[in-house]
């Protein structure tokens, strides 16, 4: 324990009076690479929010005279279309900027839905045990048996395209990841004496699960969810690449990569720049979440 522990008077100094969360955030800020990555993620988010202000052109405006125009620094390029134009003469930069909205919105929405379901199911399975645990755990096992992308493709084929359907198709399986994390942590935490103390005081099962256990297992869940968000963004891009995701003419990175497939040798920029955008965002989220994990979970710090 800290030296301040000898008297509660000393313990009340501002430095000691910080919560565990603040201490973790300080650790996170000390990690340079993770901090830079977090800034990159924030820039992407800002770009998505301010898309109409940042994008030089309407992402859906076609200009047949500029079909497959190369990026500005190549011969035939122009700075009004910095990353060139696609087969319909649409500005690639503007479409990437608008595509950020789709990637981040779907990624965040899927993770939000999946994590909420996963937390509730995991808490119920881990704390209530018995048949609740058997039912939830078997369902998780069954869902884990399906290949993710093929499962999502099947669902999209059944439900038809559309933003809400994409989110549902991905969340259908995504919730098992936070669910397993939460269940495992709950199994450990439920045996701790402070949980027993709450039961001895007459606390309800709902209170114990949501107020006593959940705050103590949230760190690993947040970490896993951020890592998974990168994965979901790739999955959305994959669905859109296959034509099952966001429907044209809405700009989506996966669909843009698919659009350039036919001319990848002559007009490489059509596929490459949206691909780089996917890479950058996913990489930044991964590195930032790695930093989060190190800061929040002492078991993983090296």
């Amino acid at each position: 324990m800290s030296t301040a522990a000898q008297s509660p008077t000393e313990a009340a100094t501002p430095a000691a009076a910080t919560s565990i969360f603040r201490r973790n955030m300080r650790d996170f800020a000390d990690n340079r690479l993770a901090l830079v990555s977090a800034v990159v993620v924030v820039l992407f988010v800002l770009m998505a929010l301010a898309a109409p202000l940042v994008a030089p052109h309407d992402p859906n405006a076609t200009d047949l005279f500029r079909r497959l125009q190369p990026p500005a620094w190549m011969e035939g390029g122009s700075w009004s279309y910095p990353l060139g134009a696609d087969a319909l003469g649409r500005d690639i930069l503007s479409r990437i900027i608008y595509g950020t909205r789709i990637s981040i919105f779907i990624g965040a929405a899927v993770i939000l839905v999946a994590t909420t379901i996963g937390i509730l199911a995991g808490l119920a399975a881990g704390y209530l045990r018995g048949w609740t645990d058997v039912a939830i755990s078997r369902l998780v096992d069954i869902l884990l048996g399906f290949p993710y992308l093929i499962f999502a493709i099947g669902l999209m084929a059944m439900m038809g395209p559309g933003l809400v359907n994409i989110i549902l198709a991905l969340a259908y399986k995504e919730w098992v990841i936070p669910c397993r994390v939460v269940r495992g942590e709950t199994l450990v935490t439920r045996e701790l004496e402070y949980v027993e103390a709450a039961r001895a005081l007459g606390a309800s099962r709902g209170h114990i699960m949501l107020r006593e256990i959940l705050p103590n297992i949230l760190s690993p869940v947040i970490v896993v969810s951020t890592i998974r968000m990168a994965h979901v963004i790739i999955l959305e891009a994959s669905l859109s690449f296959l034509g099952l995701g966001v429907q044209p003419p809405t700009a989506s990175w996966g669909a843009m990569v698919a659009d350039g497939r036919a001319f990848i040798l002559e007009s490489w920029w059509v596929s490459t720049f949206p691909g780089v955008a996917i890479l950058l965002l996913v990489l930044a989220i991964n590195v930032a979440s790695q930093g989060l994990r190190d800061a929040f979970d002492p078991r993983f710090s090296e």
Binding site: A198, L201, P215
Partner: peptide
């Protein structure tokens, strides 16, 4: 009521002392 052996395990680390002691009054 019960008083536990391990004072490190018996208090929820995420709640303030006021929350912990006030819980029985709230419940």
């Amino acid at each position: 009521q019960i008083i536990f052996q391990d004072p490190y395990a018996s208090l929820n680390p995420r709640r303030t002392v006021g929350d912990i002691i006030g819980l029985p009054l709230r419940l």
